[in-house]
Design a protein around this nucleic acid. Structure first.
Lengths: 174, 174
DNA sequence: CTCAATGCAAATCTTTTGCATGCTA
DNA sequence: TAGCATGCAAAAGATTTGCATTGAG
């Protein structure tokens, strides 16, 4: 969907470490942890970087298939697991029993969306990313996080907010 | 786990409508919608009321089995679906691929926990209910909700917050 | 050359569904 | 008695795993 070259260009401009694009940066991040870079993994990273939009494993599989036919669905799952572990991806559940993934935020590259939360339609599963009020929200969450960490002896690494409701289209249907 | 009689007693005191306990109130709520009250449904409601603590369908199934052997797992799922639809239960996903349920809050009975959110250990799936800072949190969420509703034309019915991290025990293990 | 990574197929696990039968209202 | 609710078994759907083979470093 995205224009590849434009994407590479923007990222190239902001990074001078020899990697031409975010894909390169991610490759480095994986290799640095001892993972081998394979054609399958390249293709998967590529798809994720260029379609950063709540993709499911199946979505990714289908897209990877077109650039690298013969890839196995199991490889997609295995790679996604690594990427989630390495905190390169976030894994979400929007309530339909299918895991979805998006690039984690990182100050090191601009391809990821900024910090945002989700507004999910319980009928059609449409997802809106919103960033409105994020600052206030994040401030409160950070405070809460800190206090909860102390009180319950948790090492909190993440939070998750979602609003659920009916989108305009689904509402007018009934 | 809970003391049944004590539970019934407390609830009995607060309700004078002919139902002796929250289970009775719930039964009324179901019947009022045209659902038939069956032994299976009675048993399921009973288990939920007396073990209101993030139970999975399987958990509920096993507990119901002991008071009503012969119940089918499918019946558990079918009943839970109704209860969620009727907003008697909330359905949660704590990230381990298993749906969990707890009584929705209601001003009409006291058996439900108050409004709270969850702190989930990503290692052992332990869940802490916390109510700290809930007021501030809820205030912010309500504001956000209202503004999001307007801006994105969503009819927002629900929100969901969760913090993730490592609990003390899991942290010390590694 | 070594061992991590892969593809495929089978297995697993949760949840849903079809259908003949039972039970509530 | 009518038709909703049930149990059972099978199906569905997402994800994981075992294993022989491939390929990156």
């Amino acid at each position: 969907m995205l224009n590849t070259n434009e994407n590479d260009y923007q990222l190239g401009v902001s990074m001078r470490n020899g990697n031409r694009c975010m894909g390169g940066w991610l490759r480095g991040k994986l290799k640095g942890c001892g993972y081998k870079m394979t054609l399958a993994r390249e293709a998967i990273l590529d798809v994720i970087v260029k379609n950063n939009d709540h993709l499911s494993a199946e979505d990714i599989y289908l897209k990877v298939m077109s650039s690298f036919p013969g890839v196995g669905l199991a490889t997609i799952y295995r790679t996604l697991e690594i990427l989630v572990c390495r905190q390169i991806l976030y894994k979400f559940d929007f309530g339909d029993g299918v895991a979805r993934y998006e690039l984690a935020e990182s100050k090191d590259f601009k391809g990821s969306k900024g910090h945002h939360h989700h507004l999910v339609c319980t009928k059609c599963s449409k997802v809106v990313d919103y960033t409105d009020f994020i600052d206030k929200e994040v401030k409160l969450l950070n405070e809460t996080e800190e206090e909860l960490s102390k009180k319950y002896n948790f090492n909190i690494t993440n939070h998750f907010i979602q609003f659920y409701g009916l989108c305009e289209r689904c509402r007018s249907k009934r």
